[in-house]
Design a protein around this nucleic acid. Structure first.
Lengths: 250, 250
DNA sequence: TATGTTAATTGATCTTGATCAATGAACCTT
DNA sequence: AAGGTTCATTGATCAAGATCAATTAACATA
């Protein structure tokens, strides 16, 4: 299974002409119910495509913010570099998601965005997006929802980091990935991780050894099958039970 | 020192007539540079005041979202209730801050907001705010910055929860409070905590005993002086050092 | 294909913070 | 002011996860 392949088959995009406008569909366009003219406006703004090879940077911490990026294909992580040189992963991002929301406030990127596989993004000049939002209320409203959703997502991670133990965190993480793959038309039971154990650990507030042990534990219980980066979920219900008390899966 | 008392003395609000429009000044109005007419528009939207007694709820998880709330005075916490009945604090909020951003996405409140002291808020009907945003670009832009700032803040907490140890977390927390008091015209070295050790612990991902021990440790080192809820910062530089590696203080 | 490099697993030990428990201080309420 | 309740501190013990270390597996590059 290749995750690089775009899969919009279940979405109605037949009325969209510009190939690049499609990149922001999932989050930015489709749910809003724009008319043809509005889609045209948005398409004009979202025009510039950019390819990022595996390991390449979409943006660096400290650089000037000008555009949001809609992921057209691929998989990226965002991370902050701490004084001591260690890095903390703040998120993993896949097709259809929007990057750069954190940079709006200071107009400076507060994190690095790194491609974990060859990726393609659409650049969305933020000033232009705001400009056309003024004439497309539903677009503005939808954008507010996207930002809000990001806040909810972060609260979920805070909850995870603040109150769950290692195994629960990993279960929560896998279920989250599973759901996101599923939404994009991939199997929710079989997928390849794009990130290392260390990156997972960084995201989950654990050391890589602890992540590895948690994987092994879940495998010993036959809940998942782990083959290096390939994960198979054998019993998603029991995996859900692992999360236990925590209300938020995010 | 009473924190209940509003303190806008260092801000120029001389041109604002409506007493309630002032409540959202710090975050929503002032920095934007609105003209008189625009301020009038905003004042019309932000008209309804609400008092919340200590221990009272501003909103409950699961209820319908209609309005943002700008804190006019007081101190609140937001928290989510987990299945097992334990609650996790997701934030502490003071004068001038905006509550409810998380609820925009689903139009359902995702957390409880509880007053930790007698508080007063201004209700900002969100639909109306969006409506007038369409005609006041700078207001819309400023609102986007506020949402973005919330995301940055949350990333900071994620970093804290994911990579700092108990004493570093508490140092970070105290410095954050200190800065926010300072911005509002209060002493950055002397303040009263509005929340219990348990609530601090919940927010920082620690047990109350650990919080208490961390306080004692910092006091033993003469960095702070703790007298129950009253905190005095004796050596803010050493307190900053305590945070160590972590890049973000939030 | 060989070889160096990076990533993953697993074991042994140590540390931090959680848990259990007891005491004392603050704060309502009447 | 008295009594109950909540809150905070401190000590003793325990457990989860970090750290240290060794081995193996996967991957990249010559």
């Amino acid at each position: 299974m290749s995750l690089q392949t775009s899969s919009y088959s279940h979405l109605d995009i037949s009325n969209i002409k510009s190939s690049c406008a499609t990149c922001s569909l999932r989050e930015l366009c489709l749910p809003v119910g724009l008319n043809t003219q509005e889609i045209q406006k948005l398409g004009d703004v979202v025009s510039h495509k950019r390819k990022i090879p595996r390991g390449g940077y979409l943006h660096h911490t400290g650089t000037k913010f000008q555009s949001l990026f809609a992921i057209r294909s691929g998989f990226l992580k965002t991370c902050v570099l701490e004084q001591d040189g260690r890095q903390q992963v703040t998120g993993f991002h896949m097709t259809g998601e929007l990057l750069g929301l954190d940079a709006i406030s200071s107009e400076i990127h507060t994190c690095d965005a790194v491609a974990l596989e060859d990726s393609e993004v659409c650049e969305i000049p933020f000033a232009k997006l705001e400009e056309i939002s003024l004439s497309i209320p539903s677009l503005m409203h939808h954008f507010h929802k996207i930002m809000s959703r990001e806040i909810v997502r972060d609260h979920g991670v805070m909850l995870l980091l603040g109150s769950m133990k290692a195994e629960e965190r990993l279960a929560s993480f896998l279920l989250n990935l599973s759901r996101r793959f599923s939404i994009r038309g991939y199997s929710e039971y079989n997928f390849n991780l794009r990130m290392t154990r260390e990156e997972i650990g960084s995201y989950l507030g654990l050391k890589l050894e602890t992540v590895s042990r948690a994987f092994s534990k879940l495998q010993d219980e036959s809940i998942i099958t782990v083959d290096n980066k390939h994960i198979q979920i054998n019993d998603i219900d029991r995996l859900r039970l692992k999360m236990g008390n925590s209300s938020c899966a995010t």
